[in-house]
Amino acid sequence: MESLDFAPSAVARMLRGRPTGLVAVIAEQLTTTPDSAEIIKGIQSVCEEHGKILLIGETGGVAETGSRLVADMRERRVEAIIFATPFHREVTLDHVLGQTPAVLANCFQSDPRYAQVVPDDEGGGYDAAKIVLQAGHRKIAFLQLIEGMTATRLRLQGFHRAMQEHEVPVNPKWLKHGAAAVDGNEFEHLEEAIDSLFAQANRPTAILCGNDKMAMRVIFILQRRGLRVPDDVSVVGFDDFRIISEALDPALTTVGLPYREIGELAARQALAGEEASAATVRMPCRPIMRGTVAPPPKGRHK
């Protein structure tokens, strides 16, 4: 076989009705988003475990490209198609999949026709609040992600649940959006938000941030204003984007998104074929304790 440079023909296998061993991922700007690329790694690990070959098509966020990729993957007789997005959001699938098994990873349809695996963002917001509540904080600000995002809404629900369970009142003035959907710098109004939090004598002792990139900027802004983290203000991120969370000094306390686990379960559901039900699975986020959370300064926890 080596001397003749022989390779099995996928076309011949299709003609014989044998499985091609191919699994497709239709990614929406996922391959260019480093902090969520772990989804691909999770899918790849399961494909290797089952002896499957992974094909990846990138839509660039263009619906027409997605439709073309689906048609191309079906021509190749892939055994399953996994749709994956870089952030938790609702999608509308108008693609004609026929009998090809499909699974959604990190995205969902309100009327699910396929299995879908998403992060438990509501639980993540709850855990982020619990980290600082258990450290003794009662003056807690929440700098959220972009308004209208699924994760923004769910994490805020979790935050309110944790505050209610600990009987800590929420200060509405301390609930702000630290990121905005603008061209260029999504954090261009972050300094203004920080300044408004600390303009009065009554100021927060802990700040929850929508993601680690925001948390890093928050720490730098606080330091420029002479505030120490965590001695004066505790900071919690979200994602566990390790290029940031482990590189900061002190290292960032955060809530990790289960990107790899989402990819792994989505791949297993896809390979289950008809046995996979059209249900939504929410993968738990995990608190990761590092060095940016400490008890509130004495006299400022009430």
Rank of each mutant, 00 (worst) to 15 (best):
P101I: 09
C107H: 04
I26C: 12
E147K: 11
P86A: 10
L97F: 15
T205F: 01
L190Y: 00
N202D: 15
V281M: 12
L30N: 02
T59H: 09
V118Q: 01
A272H: 03
E48V: 09
T205W: 02
L271D: 01
D249N: 12
V117Q: 04
P112Q: 08
H95Y: 11
A151G: 09
L222A: 09
D212K: 10
P8L: 11
T20K: 00
V236M: 06
A128V: 08
V281I: 14
C209A: 02
T31V: 15
R68F: 08
E165D: 13
S196W: 08
F87I: 06
L30P: 09
T254M: 10
A270L: 06
L133N: 01
P287R: 11
R286Y: 07
L15A: 10
L208M: 11
P287I: 00
D195I: 10
A270E: 00
L97T: 10
P172Y: 09
V25K: 03
I219L: 08
K41Y: 12
S110E: 14
A27V: 00
G21F: 01
R155V: 07
A7R: 15
A278Y: 10
V78D: 00
A128S: 13
A141G: 11
A251Q: 14
F6Q: 09
D121Y: 05
K173Y: 05
R113C: 12
F108H: 07
V23D: 03
L208D: 04
I262C: 03
T150F: 01
L145H: 08
S234Y: 08
A63R: 13
M149P: 06
V132G: 00
E38M: 12
Y259W: 14
Q164I: 02
E264V: 04
P230N: 10
H88S: 00
D5N: 14
Q29S: 14
R217C: 01
P284M: 12
L208K: 07
P86G: 00
D231K: 11
L104K: 05
L252I: 04
A179H: 03
R138D: 00
A7V: 13
L143S: 07
G210Q: 03
P101M: 08
Q144I: 03
A199K: 13
K139S: 03
I131N: 02
L133G: 01
R290I: 05
E75D: 15
A247M: 13
F108N: 03
C47S: 06
L145F: 05
S196G: 11
P297K: 10
I56P: 05
T33M: 07
R76F: 07
E186H: 04
S277R: 15
R225K: 15
G17Q: 10
E58R: 08
E188H: 12
R268K: 15
V281R: 09
P169N: 07
